[in-house]
Design a protein around this nucleic acid. Structure first.
Length: 502
RNA sequence: GGCCCCAUCGACUAGUGGUUAGGUCAUCACCCUUUCAAGGUGGUAGCACGGGUUCAAAUCCCGUUGGGGUCACCA
């Protein structure tokens, strides 16, 4: 093991979308592998045929790649330890299950579902831990079932499963990288089914076999697997294999501290993508849920490169973490604030183009879809939006005429004089040769001063007429970017529609 | 219920025997300001409880309480 190249894995079952908890598990596996100069692998656990969802595998991998988590080996991209889909490795499980059988570490079990259920109910009623009652444990490994009966059943060809024989009166101990030493009494470990009656292995069996043959050095997975660790360890022992190091991650929680689930909000990474969150923010956020750099660091914003550089399993916390959307929102804003202008423009341009298919603009298309124009919009709005798409939606007045005027704002800002004042100032704006923010500002001040009025009496109505809303960037810059023609058109239109009293 | 894991502000966390218990989000106030943001300053707010060990405990030990996970021919 010493000096061995680190190999970690993310092993989802293709049953649907990628869960944010899964994203974090994948991320930590990825970060650790990359930090150690090793490899990160994706393996698909599709041993439950009934739950398999079409395209899930593809989507899982696509979503991980969106997040910037690129596997060195995966079913989509191959590798030298394949196949990376468990349903394509059935022969392997079969072979090693036979070995367990002949070594008396496993046995056939012909119990029916009804029998099992009955047994379970009985045990629950007696206040016992539900466990298989070992009815089919053969005589030669300490059970009571004669070999002849087993052979007869086998010959009849009836359905059966294969169970592992958990040794009695031993204790299973291991060292978890995150939690330290953990110990289980074998009396609490069930004779886990290894092979199902459909010939497929269970998760427990397949993952141990694969983890061994794919030569993973570290297993990093959610805490929900902690209590099945002893079964896995026993399997390694049966085979005489050296188990990988393990780290069980704390769970992601709902606001009420239960395991993060649907019903209480979105859990699919795709949901967050749809809502407009960027991969930068999601990765950053999810990374900080359970891990921190420590040593007094007060950094909050980390790039993937920085995460790889700083990550360590030792600094992963033990307690579950609540998935708090407010902080994610804040992070998203941080990224928008600092993202290069060209990058933002390249993202919003297609969104705007799509919007223009639906809605008509009175502004010259070649101008409002130009890089130069969008760059100005971005600079004015980047500190005011929560998501990239808001450069288009939240800022629609940069491209479209206001459809209505904020009623509250109009009520608050209009006086009997407003109409007249706007009329007069419009003339000044129409004759302006230099329609710059600076110039507009001086003209407005010049206009208002002799009347001994405050600039605000015009500023607010102008903003409302130009944008339809009462908030936004500096008025003068807003007007400059919109351009003389548009501004004049909007003032005229609005001043006609709004009359005092409102 | 058995077994296992966990426990610092509302949330994410720093802290590894001696700190005025620090930072970030959220929240509140003020400043800046034409609005909204952004930014700045300041504030409210936390070691679950009880026993030990020690000169000294958020930190080590035990217990209690609370929360979570898991007990499938699902992963």
């Amino acid at each position: 093991m010493v000096g061995q190249r680190v190999r970690t894995r993310f092993a989802p079952s293709p049953t649907g979308y990628l869960h944010v908890g899964g994203l974090r598990t994948a991320l930590y596996n990825y970060l650790y592998a990359k930090k150690m100069g090793g490899d990160f692998i994706i393996r698909i656990e599709d041993t439950d045929q009934s739950r398999k969802v079409e395209d899930a595998q593809k989507n899982l991998i696509k979503t991980l790649e969106w997040a910037g988590i690129i596997a060195d080996e995966s079913p989509e991209h191959g590798g030298s330890y394949g196949p990376y889909v468990q349903s394509e490795r059935l022969g392997l499980y079969d072979k090693y299950c036979k070995q367990l059988l002949s070594d008396n570490h496993a046995y056939y079990c012909f119990a029916t579902h009804e029998e099992l259920e009955e047994n379970r109910q009985l045990q629950i009623k007696q206040g016992l831990q539900p466990k298989y009652n070992r009815k089919w444990l053969p005589e030669e490994i300490g059970g009571s079932m004669p070999a002849s009966v087993i052979k007869k059943k086998l010959d009849e060809g009836g359905p059966y499963v294969i169970r592992m024989k958990v040794p009695d009166y031993i204790s299973v101990w291991f060292e978890d990288i995150i939690r330290g030493p953990v110990e289980f009494d074998s009396a609490t470990i069930d004779d886990q089914v290894l092979m199902k009656s459909d010939g497929f292995p269970t998760y427990h069996f397949a993952s141990v076999i694969d983890d061994h043959f794919m030569e993973f050095t570290h297993i990093i997975r959610g805490e929900e697997w902690l209590s099945s660790m002893p079964k896995h360890l026993l399997l390694y022992e049966f085979f005489g294999w050296e188990p990988p190091k393990v780290a069980h991650l704390p769970l992601l929680l709902n606001a009420d501290r239960s395991k993060l689930s649907k019903r209480q909000g979105d859990v699919a990474v795709e949901d967050y993508i749809r809502k407009g969150y960027s991969n930068d923010a999601i990765i950053n956020f999810v990374a900080m849920l359970g891990w921190n750099e420590g040593e007094g660091s007060e950094q909050e914003v980390y790039s993937m490169e920085q995460l790889i550089e700083k990550f360590s399993l030792e600094r992963v916390g033990k307690a579950g973490a609540v998935f708090n959307i407010e902080k994610l929102n804040w992070l998203e804003k941080q990224y928008i604030k600092n993202r290069p202008t060209e990058k933002l423009v390249s993202v919003i341009k297609p969104l705007l183009l799509a919007e223009l298919e639906q809605k008509k603009s009175l502004m010259p298309l070649e101008i409002i879809t130009s890089d130069a124009y969008l760059e100005k919009v971005v600079e004015l709005m980047r500190e005011r939006v929560g998501f990239e798409y808001e450069f288009v939606t939240f800022s629609s007045y940069f491209y479209f005429e206001p459809e209505s005027y904020d009623e509250e704002a109009v009520k608050k800002r209009w006086t009997p004089d407003t109409h007249e004042l706007l009329q007069e100032f419009l003339i000044i704006l129409q004759t302006l040769d230099d329609f710059s923010a600076e110039n507009i500002e001086t003209e407005l001040k010049k206009f208002v001063e002799p009347k001994s009025m405050k600039a605000a009496v015009l500023i607010h109505p102008l903003r409302i007429l130009a944008s339809g809303v009462s908030f936004g960037p500096s008025l003068y810059h807003l007007l400059e970017v919109l351009g003389q023609e548009t501004v004049i058109r909007r003032i005229k239109a609005g001043n006609e529609k709004i009359s005092f009293p409102v």
